[in-house]
């Protein structure tokens, strides 16, 4: 344990990241550049989220890490172990017990509270990236609020599929100013982003941090005649029977049998325990 500085990063680096986080909170949805460090994991595995978590953690914190809602998948297990080893903080799988939750691609089903921080892992922070490849141009579009192009993408969805088919990383407008990529969470989770907890987004490879302060207005973009819809599989969880949670579809055998289960493992387990 003493071989590492608390939470792996050195104090100067953590200060630098905290400054970026504070700026991000002051300007909700704005992508703050930061000097992302090399982390002992490959890009795409949550290097940004890990750095934000490292800068946020205190020795008293209790950490929860989820990957697609699950506590027991490779990415979640490795990152949890990483902080157990380098920070010595307590960890948990219970959403309501955690003070810092690092997540990849989901928001927990249980409602978060004011004393919690949700840290997202972000692969590509720029919502306009696939429409406009030039960084100079996308920055200008953000600064001048030229967001018409974002709707071109939604238009293309409707013209090709008859409905807005973007199902994850669904663009939102934060505090009526910046258009933001909510990281690849399913659009089912978009309405939850107006929450009591602090939301921090870290993109390690792209070297950007952005944030949504508590109780900030987060609006999913849409058309007047094609309003935003938070969709999920039309099914109940086959394990706990929940009808209000986001479901994973699991293929059971070669004959195509499938079952639907909650993607949030903690939510599913606690419901089953309560029922038992």
């Amino acid at each position: 344990m003493s071989d590492y500085n608390f939470a792996y990063l050195d104090e100067q680096t953590k200060r630098m990241i905290r400054r970026a986080i504070l700026k991000g909170l002051a300007v909700p949805g704005y992508q703050v550049p930061f000097a992302s460090r090399e982390m002992p994991m490959p890009y795409g595995w949550g290097t940004g989220g890990v750095q934000v978590s490292a800068a946020t953690l205190t020795p008293e914190d209790r950490l929860k890490v989820i990957d697609q809602g699950a506590d027991d998948t490779t990415n979640a297990v490795s990152i949890r172990k990483f902080f157990e080893r380098t920070a010595g903080v307590a960890t948990t799988e219970m959403t309501q017990d955690a003070t810092v939750i690092q997540t990849r691609h989901r928001i927990p089903e249980a409602e978060l509270t004011e004393d919690q921080i949700l840290v997202y892992q972000v692969p590509i922070p720029e919502p306009l990236r696939f429409l406009e490849p030039r960084e100079t141009e996308t920055r200008k579009m953000h600064s001048l609020q030229e967001y018409g192009l974002m709707h071109v993408k939604l238009y293309e969805d409707i013209s090709q599929h008859g409905a807005i088919s973007t199902a994850y990383a669904y663009p939102v407008r934060v505090a009526e100013r910046y258009v933001m990529d909510p990281s690849p969470i399913p659009k089912f989770d978009n309405p939850k982003m107006e929450m009591a907890a602090i939301q921090l987004f870290g993109a390690g490879r792209e070297q950007r941090i952005y944030a949504v302060p508590p109780y900030t207005r987060v609006v999913s973009l849409d058309f007047e005649d094609y309003p935003f819809e938070a969709t999920k599989a039309d099914h109940a969880c086959d394990l706990c029977g929940a009808e209000d949670s986001y479901l994973d579809e699991v293929i059971m055998d070669d004959a195509g049998t499938r079952m639907f289960v909650c993607s949030d493992t903690d939510y599913c387990r606690s419901r089953r325990e309560a029922a038992a």
Binding site: G148, H151, Y155
Partner: peptide
């Protein structure tokens, strides 16, 4: 989408 882009850029939000 090409034709619609300018309309959306000036704020039209009706598909």
């Amino acid at each position: 989408g090409n034709i619609g882009e300018r309309l959306m850029a000036v704020g039209d939000r009706h598909y």
